[in-house]
Design a protein around this nucleic acid. Structure first.
Lengths: 151, 151
DNA sequence: TCTTCATGTAACTTAAAATATTACATGAAA
DNA sequence: TTTCATGTAATATTTTAAGTTACATGAAGA
């Protein structure tokens, strides 16, 4: 079962946008993410609907953050990505009338909900600003050996 | 991102085996799971390596539980299935030198680990016996309207 | 105005992964 | 010695995610 790294990838994009002076093109972002510009535009198009980023066409155009770094949590971004399920495991639902399946699902659902709630609670407490601060800290720490972050 | 319902499915199989008098064939189990007998044999073959089930060939053969219901937890079964990742979300690892990625991953890893630990802890506390008792309870409750669990 | 650049989006292709199927060998019971 | 069931490799199918192409829309600059 493969893991969905879109949230991680989007955070990557947003922090790079936060670092930049002006708008960043989908082509530049695609370079960082080693993917196609259209993929970037699709993802960021979704975030724009939620008011997290804005885009401009034409010369000097591109993407920029639309909100303050302090006000955006991982949870906001998770929602903007469509709130995909956070767990890789799930219940069977092929035999809803089977009492065995009902017993199994009841027991597992409790555990699943607890884990999911904990993860989302953590997401609420992490802001783009806190990530940005951590990045700055790392940059200073690494300044002697490497003055720029690279792709 | 599709969810892995193997654990749920295996519990279904094991509880049905617990209910049965003698060995149950992979064909019968495949009928319950609406899949192919070979798929069942592959899955149960893995569990046999861990000592959870045993199989017999030939006439009257099939699969049966190898351990006491009280002694088997969901965690044991999860391990026997190869301990697949429990989270659907994960970190990007395409640019390990990028400090942005490092900051993002550090923050998310904490949250991921906490959620995973909580889920696995819950798995430790659920035994096949407790599921079986819950099933019996449901069967009694439903006795008036339906005397058998069906597929 | 007209060329250039960038987004917006639909349609399509490719790639990867999970799942299912076929085929046949092994071994046990009737 | 026939039947039945597991054991397992090889293959095929299905499903899902990701990437690509193509072209329309609109903004800035020459």
């Amino acid at each position: 079962m493969k893991r969905d790294s879109r949230l991680s990838g989007v955070l990557h994009l947003l922090l790079h946008m936060a670092e930049a002076d002006g708008p960043v093109t989908s082509e530049a972002l695609a370079g960082m993410m080693q993917t196609n510009p259209v993929v970037i535009r699709r993802i960021l198009g979704g975030l724009r609907k939620e008011g997290l980023v804005q885009s401009e066409k034409g010369h000097g155009g591109g993407w920029r953050l639309a909100r303050d770094l302090e006000s955006v949590t991982l949870y906001d971004i998770h929602l903007a990505l469509g709130a995909p399920g956070v767990l890789a495991l799930g219940n069977r639902t092929e035999s809803p009338g089977c009492l065995v399946e009902q017993a199994v699902n009841a027991a597992m659902s409790d555990a699943f909900e607890a884990a999911e709630a904990l993860l989302l609670e953590r997401f609420h407490s992490i802001t783009l600003a806190s990530l940005s601060r951590d990045f700055s800290r790392r940059r200073k720490r690494n300044a002697s050996t490497c003055d720029q972050h690279r792709h």
